[in-house]
Every structure is written in structure tokens, then in C-alpha cells.
């Protein structure tokens, strides 16, 4: 009297529990993405609703890939992210190491560090727009009062300076993600390997390079993975600080999408660009998530 198999509801339970989450994501993200893909294959303009049904193949993609403005925004976005994230990582690591050294008031410092993370990007943008305003901004006022310069520096008007200011705002906003997670990594770091390395004759740089840093990498990848979910927040910064100006010199992929799609109402073309930006973000997240999983496995082996 042996029954071949007892199947229980428990095997369905995890899927049922996940159903609302998956359904929401499919409805609010996947479905629109499919719609967006279709739109990118049409000459759709908001002003001419019927154009949604003209299939024109890859024309939009061919057009944007042949468009220098697009490439400029694309490359600027890549450069911007590369610089911003590397600086954030380096600064975040520095801050984490610093705070790890401090024995008193660590908690308070950590809390303060979290604040920029919780700021609305639009607020960060506004804040730096306010600080960097050439007439009334506190930065110029301070520089002039101190006699370091006698004329107003056009922080948000000059193309190079504007890009610098935007990057600065981004770094200010996002460094704490790295600092906090790397600090958590330092707190979690076991003493034994450090002491073993010291006994083995490593100097402090070698200890850092061969013990501390590898241990911190999974934490860095968590930070990168979290950060990668939100890279497009830079849109908010630019939208409020320069709106892509002057003369499109701070245009990023995301602001370009908004301009082409909403201001010029060329939805077909904008969706093609949006797809490129989506793929960029997804690849970025995917890459760091994979790194995280790999690092985790490697850490698991050490435990």
C-alpha cells in the first residue's frame, strides 16, 4: 500500500505568494515595454494618433543610430556614469575606512551619511542649482567675499562647468550608498584573517589590498547593484539644474528621450531611444547582480 507520490499544496505556495508581485511587474512594466517596443517600430506622434498603426520596421533605430545628437548624449551618459560611479566608489571607500577608524560617534555619523540617500533627486538638483546660481548662489558669494574671484563663475551656464556641477550633485547624492554598505562590510569583517596576515608579515597596505578589499567586494557589488537600479535618477538632476542646456551640452540619454518624446511629440523615435536606455540600465544591473552572486558564492566558501 505505498502511494507513488504525495503532492501537496506546499509546492504551489511559493508561486501563489509571488503571484501579486509578478503580476504587478508584468502589468506595469513588461506590458508597457512590449507596447514601447511596438511604438518604436512605428512613426507614432502624439499629435497624429493613427500613426501608431504604421509599421515601419527599424527605421527609427536606423535614424537614431545615424543621429549625432543621439550619440553625443549616449556617450556623455556613459562618461558621466563612469566618472560618477568610480568617484562614488572611491569616496565611499575612503569614508567607510575613515569612519571605521573612529571609535566615538560612529552611529551618528552613519545616520548623517544616510541622509543624502533619502533626498529626492529633484531636491538635490534644486539644492545645487541654488548653491551654484551665478548671481545669488552661496558658492559664488563665498568665493567673491573671500576675494578668490571677482566675477561670477557661470557654474550652470558654461557647458563644462555645468557637467561638472551635475556630476558633483550626483556624487553628493549617491556616495553614501557605497559608504554605508562598505562600512557595513568593515563592521562584519572577521578579525582573524587580518591578524593572520599581520603575523604573516603583511604591511598595512598589503593587508588592505589582499584581505580587506576582497572581503569588501561583495558589499561593493551590493552597492553597485542597488545603485544600478537608479542610474536614471540623474534625469531628475539634469531636468531641474540645466534641462540639458546650454545648447544641449548637458543632454543625457534620458533628457533626450523626454525632449524627443514629450516636447517634440515624436513618440516612435523617443521609444527607440528609450529602449536603448532601458537595455543599458538592464545590462548594468544584470552585470553587477551576476558579480554579486559570484562574490557571494566565493564568500560562502570561506565561511
Amino acid at each position: 500500500m505505498i502511494r507513488a507520490l504525495t503532492t501537496r499544496r506546499t509546492e504551489l505556495a511559493p508561486f501563489l505568494l509571488l503571484l501579486p508581485a509578478v503580476a504587478t511587474m508584468l502589468f506595469v512594466v513588461a506590458l508597457p515595454l512590449i507596447f514601447s517596443l511596438w511604438t518604436s517600430l512605428t512613426p507614432y506622434k502624439l499629435t497624429k494618433p493613427n500613426t501608431l498603426y504604421d509599421f515601419i520596421g527599424l527605421t527609427n533605430y536606423i535614424r537614431i543610430f545615424g543621429d549625432w545628437d543621439f550619440w553625443e548624449a549616449f556617450l556623455r551618459t556613459i562618461a558621466f556614469l563612469t566618472v560618477a560611479i568610480n568617484v562614488e566608489f572611491a569616496l565611499g571607500l575612503g569614508i567607510a575606512l575613515l569612519i571605521n577608524k573612529i571609535t566615538w560617534g560612529q552611529r551618528g555619523l552613519r545616520t548623517i551619511m544616510m541622509f543624502p540617500m533619502m533626498f529626492s533627486p529633484i531636491l538635490v538638483g534644486f539644492q545645487f542649482k541654488f548653491l551654484f546660481n551665478d548671481h545669488i548662489g552661496v558658492v559664488n558669494n563665498a568665493l567673491q567675499s573671500l576675494g578668490l574671484t571677482d566675477q561670477a563663475i557661470p557654474w550652470l551656464v558654461d557647458a563644462k562647468l555645468a557637467m561638472f556641477s551635475i556630476t558633483l550633485a550626483e556624487v553628493w547624492m549617491s556616495t553614501s550608498v557605497f559608504a554605508i554598505l562598505l562600512l557595513a562590510g568593515l563592521f562584519a569583517m572577521p578579525r582573524d584573517p587580518l591578524e593572520a596576515a599581520k603575523v604573516d608579515g603583511c604591511n598595512s597596505w598589503q593587508v588592505f589590498r589582499h584581505i580587506t578589499l576582497p572581503f569588501l567586494m561583495p558589499f561593493a557589488y551590493i552597492a553597485m547593484a542597488i545603485r544600478s537600479l537608479d542610474v536614471a535618477r540623474a534625469y531628475d538632476l539634469v531636468a531641474v539644474m540645466t534641462d540639458g542646456g546650454p545648447a544641449g551640452r548637458t543632454e543625457l540619454l534620458w533628457t533626450l528621450v523626454a525632449r524627443v518624446g514629450y516636447d517634440e511629440a515624436k513618440m516612435g523615435q523617443a521609444n527607440a531611444m528609450a529602449y536603448v536606455s532601458t537595455i543599458l540600465s538592464v545590462l548594468f544591473t544584470w552585470y553587477f547582480y551576476r558579480k554579486l552572486v559570484a562574490a557571494r558564492r566565493y564568500m560562502g566558501g570561506a565561511e
Partner: peptide, 19 residues
């Protein structure tokens, strides 16, 4: 789920707006 979360807001806003 994570990758869906990574879709830039502005990119998502267009099809969602149309829908």
C-alpha cells in the same frame, strides 16, 4: 524582478502614459 526595477523611469513613462 530586479531587472524590471532597473527600467529608467522616463523610458517607462512613455508607454505607461500611452496606456
Amino acid at each position: 524582478l530586479m531587472l524590471f526595477r532597473a527600467v529608467p523611469g522616463i523610458a517607462l513613462s512613455m508607454p505607461v502614459f500611452m496606456m
